[in-house]
Amino acid sequence: MTAPCRRRNSPLLEPFADGELPTDKTVEVETHLDECECCRESVELSRALKLSLQRAVRSDAEPSTEFAERVTRALSAERERQEERERQPERGRPLAWRFIVPVAAAAGVTLVWGALDQQGKGTHPDGRISANMATSTPGVTASLDQMVDELVSHHVQSRDPDVVEPSQINKLEPEVGVPVRVPSLQQYGLRWEGASVIPVRQLNQRAASLRYSYDGHRVTLYVYNSAQFPLRATLEPRVVRNMPVYVGSRRGYSIAAVEKRGVGYAVATDLDDRESAELVASIH
């Protein structure tokens, strides 16, 4: 029996078997394996385990015919729903705005203005939602612009988060006044970093700020009471995934917002505005 090698517990062996080591370390391990039966067998056993796991798990669950049919039916139903939806707005882009106006109106834009200190109404740069902006004054637009500025400034400063544990995030709820949950953005490669509550001085309100990182970029997601944060008034409306998204940019950062059941979500990123819009539209 060969004496056990003191390197058999080396943290390099498993990553080596997984093909995760950089070249120099790979060479180092290979050189050692050439002369050490114990570690060589350890790596072989890891590989055997991997192969057997693959065979065991893959051979394990053959989908039944009933199940395959059930899935096919579910997908066909979903496909028909989507195709139905795609047929509708195909008559050109301007039509899409018809979708937004009723939604914006139904969400109670007048209520939003009522919450502001100044008795004014907002306006939209191109006036496409002018129905709701009949009595706009420049003063309010300026203060809303400053609010967007504030959010972007906060995104840029990026102070350390108060809450790091995702399960603790609902503790922010009393301060923000709306449910705060961590949306699953991992599928885009976004990594959760933490959350805090930030004051928005322009409105004398508070918002939750959820921070993510993405490939070296920072993404901040704000969650707020959409009745108190008329973000849409200063941003440009677009339709993304059949829902209205409000998009704009400040100082090279893009900001995009959606509203769902009275809760507003806005992302501030240094990505381009289409990506920010896609990202915020994917929150559900």
Partner: peptide, 21 residues
């Protein structure tokens, strides 16, 4: 199990015919 077992034992756990267990 962390100390693990000898090379000959590990070898015996593998299938000589394939590279699996």
């Amino acid at each position: 199990a962390d100390g693990w077992v000898s090379a000959s034992t590990m070898s015996a756990m593998r299938d000589p015919e394939s590279t699996a267990l």
